[in-house]
Design a protein around this nucleic acid. Structure first.
Lengths: 204, 204
DNA sequence: ACCTGAACACCGTTCAAGT
DNA sequence: ACCTGAACACCGTTCAAGT
């Protein structure tokens, strides 16, 4: 037929990302298919190419949206926590992180399931989305690590954030369950933060 | 035609896993396709189904082989290090882990790219392969964490191992590069281990 | 018992043809 | 300028037919 134009280009892109996110939240990356998305939103696959791009572009947008949602949550919980000592703040951020990943387990997993083909590199806007949560954490936790140079301090926070990612991933996926007797994730997260920040743990 | 039988069932399975691993090492999970593997080894897709199973089974075997290779390396490096203080041993294991992941970056990534469909659960033999590296680390690092109960000690080691995974993943993928000024991964790994184990770092 | 090749039901992507 | 539907080149998986 041609000419539907019920939506602007931006509205159509939002439909695509919304639909793809909904599928991803229930089925992970496997379920996210161009033709399925097209059918769900009532357009042809070609229109998605026109408004967004190929399937990799769609998934990158889904992942960017996930990261933006996490960033918002971190900022909100930080604001709500008010003026607390930085060590306590680290715990708040870690638990917000854990709660977010637990709540959107499959959607979060898409960040790791999806890899661009070897030749292709991440677009700027995606990298910006990925950096946002880390920027928030950097600002909030910098006081925890007194250091001569700013680079050292940054390294200390980034390492903690990356370490948290590892613990949260394994804990929420139950990847350690055969070895730990189904320890609840929250406990492992606290263990890491306490050891890393204060140098000792409340349990050992 | 029928009847080729140049190989036993086990030999055929080994051919499949070898070919799939080779593809994965160069292209990641995206390149691993039933028909491509079949063509490379000179059999029809149906024969792979007969000898190994479906594509998920093939990938699970690839991942199990990767984990087994890591376990061997950890054991070898532990043996070579000889009788050293446990804190030093943690550093050896962490750097072996990092070196292994760096060397087989794309192959290692398949462990995270691949997710079984929602209904299906991991077979026993895969879980056993996944546990092997962790078992080695548990035995080697248990003395680091004196604790009243064995479960606490186990949690402390597992948390360190999971945290390492996070740092190594992000460092080797360059996921932090926009925020850290291209810090070499080894430095971040050391930072984590020192802080977690001794409660302080040599740089801060 | 093993193997093949065709068949089926899906994909992503492109693009001429329509409005 | 946008949209569609057909077409192309791939998939994973199954299975009758062959040895």
């Amino acid at each position: 037929m041609g000419r539907r134009s019920d939506h602007t280009r931006e509205e159509l892109a939002a439909l695509v990302v919304g639909s793809a996110s909904a599928i991803a939240a229930r089925e992970g990356l496997r379920g996210v298919a161009m033709r399925r998305i097209a059918e769900r939103i009532g357009y042809s696959p070609g229109s998605i190419y026109n408004a967004v791009g190929d399937l990799d572009d769609v998934v990158l947008r889904v992942n960017a949206a996930t990261l933006t949602a996490l960033a918002s949550r971190l900022e909100a919980d930080l604001l709500q926590a008010g003026d607390i000592p930085p060590a306590k703040r680290a715990l708040v951020l870690a638990e917000t992180y854990l709660d977010f990943v637990s709540e959107y387990r499959l959607l979060w997993g898409v960040l790791f399931e999806h890899q661009l083909p070897p030749g292709r590199s991440l677009p700027e806007w995606f990298i910006a989305s990925r950096d946002r949560p880390v920027q928030i954490v950097l600002r909030a936790l910098a006081p925890l690590f007194p250091a001569r140079r700013a680079a050292e301090r940054r390294r200390a926070v980034l390492t903690l954030w990356a370490a948290l990612q590892g613990v949260i991933s394994m804990a929420t996926q139950g990847t350690l369950s055969s070895l730990a007797d189904r320890t609840e994730p929250r406990r492992l997260v606290r263990l890491l933060v306490e050891r890393y920040v204060t140098g000792r743990s409340s349990e050992a």
